[in-house]
């Protein structure tokens, strides 16, 4: 069985924060000017921010922002990418040529730059961030799915299905998807980490959530201005972001090792 350990714990905590956050009695937007920049203490574990709002509450709210964005971007990217990649490779010919060119064009841009440009055009807002990151994100999945399909479509079981007259859709769903899903799932886990970072980056630039909503990226941006007088404002979201991304990457690595049949048999010897 895959070893979850501390990264698993951190991720479950992140998930729990994200899912229960909206239902907890939090006051992430309650401004209390008396408490401006008060450091961590007995009343408030992580202190207050530059408007006297509790940092812990905002951290929890930020968790759900980053989780929401990561979930939707990765889901949309995986669905669109897999669909486009698989069909393009399976159909082949001119369709495939065109799709490959489109993928190349997208890959020619540095991903985050394209996302910045897109959210700049569409205007600030968290929904637009999801759209922008999905437009950038599907390409990687499409390329992976296409490569996998190309190598699989001449396998004997697919050829057999074709000769038996199975309909195309069934071949793709029954005979191809199960085999290409493993690398796609692993790619998706890494995708989560990069989307969390990208969302933080866009929010840091002011293109993500709009005040007074919180996101870890926007919290780091606000906190950076007060680093000299109130380091807790930037440390709390910064460490949270680091832990989540590190955990996702570690678990992704372990998942890859676990799903790699060759690697597993070696371990068992």
């Amino acid at each position: 069985m895959i070893r979850l350990g501390i990264p698993g714990l951190i991720l479950s905590l992140w998930f729990l924060m994200a899912v229960t956050g909206p239902f907890l009695p939090l006051h992430p937007e309650r401004i209390d000017l008396v408490n401006i920049l008060t450091g961590p203490g007995l009343n408030e574990a992580l202190g207050y921010d530059d408007l006297g709002r509790p940092v812990l509450d905002r951290l929890l709210l930020g968790a759900s922002t980053s989780f929401f964005v990561a979930f939707w971007v990765v889901t949309i990217s995986v669905v669109i990418g897999t669909f486009v990649g698989t069909f393009s490779a399976y159909i082949g010919g001119y369709v495939d040529q065109v799709v490959v060119r489109i993928i190349d064009i997208f890959l020619a841009f540095p991903g985050i730059l394209l996302a910045i440009a897109l959210s700049g055009i569409m205007g600030p807002g968290i929904e637009n961030v999801v759209v922008a990151l999905s437009i950038v994100g599907w390409v990687g999945f499409a390329r992976l799915a296409r490569a996998q399909t190309l190598s699989l479509k001449h396998r004997e079981h697919v050829v057999a299905a074709v000769s038996l007259g199975t309909v195309q859709r069934k071949i793709i769903v029954r005979h191809l998807f199960p085999l290409i899903s493993a690398p796609l799932i692993i790619e998706a886990t890494f995708g989560i980490a990069s989307v969390v970072i990208a969302e933080a980056g866009l929010s840091f630039l002011g293109l993500g959530v709009q005040p007074p909503d919180a996101s870890w990226g926007s919290m780091i941006r606000d906190g950076a201005r007060y680093m000299l007088v109130a380091p807790h404002m930037v440390l709390a979201p910064g460490i949270a972001l680091m832990l989540v991304v590190l955990s996702v990457n570690l678990l992704g690595d372990r998942l890859r090792d676990w799903m790699d049949v060759k690697g597993r048999s070696v371990v068992k010897k």
Binding site: R30, I31, D50, L51, Q210, P211, P212
Partner: peptide, 23 residues
């Protein structure tokens, strides 16, 4: 933005829901 966020909160207290947009 900081000032605007405070004003947003003060207006919310009397029944004005402010949609803050920073550009």
């Amino acid at each position: 933005i900081r000032i605007a966020t405070i004003i947003q909160q003060q207006l919310a207290e009397v029944g004005i829901k402010v949609d803050l947009r920073s550009y």
